[in-house]
Simulated assay, not measured.
Amino acid sequence: MTANTRTLTGTRSLAAALIASLSLLLTGCFMTPGKFTSELVLMDEDRFTFTYDGEIFFLGLANLAEMGAASEEFEADDCYDAQTYESRECTAAEIAEQREVWEMNAPIRAAKAQEQAQQMSAMMGGIDPSDPQASAELVELLSRQKGWESVVDKGDGVFDVRYSVSGTLSHDFMFPVIEGFPSTNPFVQIILREGGVVRVNAPGFSSQNEGNPMGSMMGSMAGLGGMAAMAGQSANGPDMPDVPTLEGTFTIVTNGQIRANNTDEGANPTPTGQMLVWDISPRTKAAPTALIDLSR
């Protein structure tokens, strides 16, 4: 295989990964935690406090869309020897024919790109990801919602946030909830059952489970930087985004009865009750979950 063939293969592999990423965004899986610390306090009389300190990565505000557009530049398909089926350099006539077909399909690609841009804007509460002010708009949107005490744009889709809310569990709870955004990939859910029993699930705090397809996608994207370099992407187009690593701790503190949980060590005593701790990393397979009785 020639150097040109390897470069072409790398470019196409990168483009395929970008298309998969953008498709993931359009299905609603567009947020994932980075480095974080999160705590949920559950007490009798249905009192609760939830905090999240750390990074949130928004796929739609990374430069993946721009990279996807760059990957739409014409690249000749591989040509093969008719007898040996080995790849070979394409002739000028073959390249010209391929380019003609590619240019004929330009209106179809443009229409699809426009459709995807409209879909991405709808997924992000009307914020246009291609607008240079998109990140500032998101900061403003979050800052006016209750609980978002601090929102700092770190660039390329990564935001450092401080979220804290306290109250009474009169209904189910989910984080994050953003005005105008679909609630499709929650980090943490609190589900109320009859009799004062609470189920806590944290699908966003695992990179390898069906409840968080975004996490597994972000894990696989960590290696795309090298692929981009192979394809010459850094020299000829936008750089790969600096996707944050999923890393943190999730803690539940409660004075209720812990009926079930999937921590490694089980509950530890505290002055006010018991504590469950999950250490989260890219190797975390099972999403944190616990069943707690607050009726005692």
Rank of each mutant, 00 (worst) to 15 (best):
T284M: 07
S207T: 11
N209Q: 01
I252M: 04
N268D: 11
Q274P: 11
P241G: 07
I252T: 00
M221A: 08
R259E: 13
I252C: 07
D242E: 12
G226I: 01
P269C: 13
A229C: 03
L276F: 05
T249H: 13
A235Y: 15
A228W: 06
R259Y: 06
G266M: 02
L276G: 04
D239F: 09
G266P: 08
S216P: 00
P271Q: 09
G223P: 04
M240T: 14
G223K: 02
G215L: 09
A229Q: 14
Q257R: 11
Q208M: 08
G226Q: 06
Q233Y: 07
L246F: 06
M240P: 09
M218F: 10
N255Y: 09
A202T: 01
S206C: 09
L224T: 13
Q274L: 13
T251Q: 11
G225S: 13
E210N: 03
A287G: 00
A235K: 15
R259A: 12
Q233F: 10
E247V: 00
I252Q: 03
D242F: 08
S220Q: 13
A287N: 00
I280T: 06
T272H: 07
M214H: 05
S216N: 10
G232S: 05
G204L: 04
P241A: 04
S220G: 15
T263M: 10
P213H: 11
G215S: 11
E247C: 00
P244K: 07
A286V: 13
